[in-house]
């Protein structure tokens, strides 16, 4: 039987990975094991258990938000069971551990996976490459570590059979790697809603001339019920917004229902972080800006004239 191990720091994402794992293993969930880091009572076990996964591995001592402790738990299980596939979320934690685990298994690895296809005993992985300009199909041999982008698979649902059937296995702490020590840890400063979760995102770019003008972006976001993000220069070079809010291939990846890019030229590094937006609106003075070609609706206008008008129309003003 093909075996897979699934881990995500987020329990909801775990359900997506279980769906993905069922593709990798060729349909059945019997061979799919789920790793839960942290205390897991009956409440937490109920939903994953009802999906029909083979085993739920509980590493009570592990902290799902600490990549080093997650790595330790994964290694403990992988060293013992040597699964054919390890499925992770393609977030910073997943990408941190994927390479080392693949090398430990002596196998392949793919991150930023957007799709899986299984045919004739071989698995083809689709992943975004070349800054979003290409989708690569990669044939992956087992064993393999796959880090899957959030939202690419439907969450696994409760199977028809009686819930709570999964065997629960407790995983012992193998002891920390003392060469790495977290000496300080605190929650990140954020300016509001998590951009990753926002349904509507207004992105501010270099078209804004002064920091105080960002007010227009915030007002628009408020009128649309969304959050404000920015391109890299506004965050990294100008420091107009905190570090968690820049959108791009190495920053935050967003997938909102609507993205309004205001004064954003549309560099590849930015677009690659926003490709999954369902609808893209561009507001730009330059009709030749790359963002115009990458948008569903483009308004070629001066943002200083257009945004106030748009905000007013959205608020129903005359």
């Amino acid at each position: 039987m093909t075996r897979a191990l699934v881990f995500s720091p987020d329990d909801d994402r775990c359900l997506e990975l279980i769906s993905a794992a069922s593709v990798a293993t060729g349909g059945g969930l019997d061979g799919v094991d789920l790793l839960l880091a942290g205390p897991a009572g009956e409440e937490r076990l109920r939903t994953p258990s009802s999906t029909g996964v083979g085993r739920i591995v509980v590493a009570e001592w592990s902290d799902p938000t600490d990549a080093f402790s997650v790595d330790r738990a994964l290694r403990a299980w992988i060293g013992r069971e040597r699964p054919d596939y390890v499925l992770l979320t393609s977030d910073r934690i997943g990408r941190q551990v994927a390479g080392g685990l693949a090398q430990l298994l002596g196998g392949g690895a793919s991150t930023e996976v957007v799709g899986l296809e299984s045919a004739g005993g071989s698995l083809t992985v689709k992943r975004m490459v070349l800054g979003g300009k290409g989708i690569a199909s990669e044939e992956v041999d087992t064993p393999a570590v796959l880090a899957i982008q959030p939202g690419r698979f439907p969450p696994a649902e409760a199977s028809g059979t009686a819930g709570g059937a999964a065997e629960v296995v407790r995983l012992e702490d193998p002891g920390a790697d003392h060469r790495v020590r977290i000496v300080e840890r605190r929650p990140r400063e954020r300016s509001g809603v998590r951009l990753e979760d926002a349904e509507v995102v207004v992105v501010a770019g270099r078209g804004f001339e002064r920091r105080e003008d960002l007010r227009l972006a915030f007002e628009l976001a408020e009128a649309l019920g969304g959050a404000v993000g920015a391109t890299r220069p506004l965050v990294a070079d100008l420091g107009w917004l905190p570090g968690s809010d820049w959108i791009g291939i190495s920053g935050v990846r967003i997938s909102p229902r609507l993205m309004v890019a205001v004064g954003v030229s549309g560099q590849m590094q930015f677009l690659a972080g926003a490709l999954d937006s369902k609808v893209i609106v561009a507001v730009n003075k330059d009709p030749n800006a790359p963002i115009v070609g990458a948008s569903d609706y483009a308004v070629v206008a001066d943002l200083y004239e257009f945004l106030p008008a748009l905000i007013e129309v959205l608020r129903g003003g005359r």
């Binding site: 196998g107 992985v125 979003g132 199909s137 609706y297 483009a298």
Partner: peptide, 20 residues
């Protein structure tokens, strides 16, 4: 062993491209 890239294809960008 490992990973072999079998093809790379540019995605079809299904954007409406309406210029207002």
């Amino acid at each position: 062993r490992g990973v072999r890239v079998s093809s790379v294809v540019s995605p079809r960008v299904e954007r409406r491209g309406v210029v207002i």
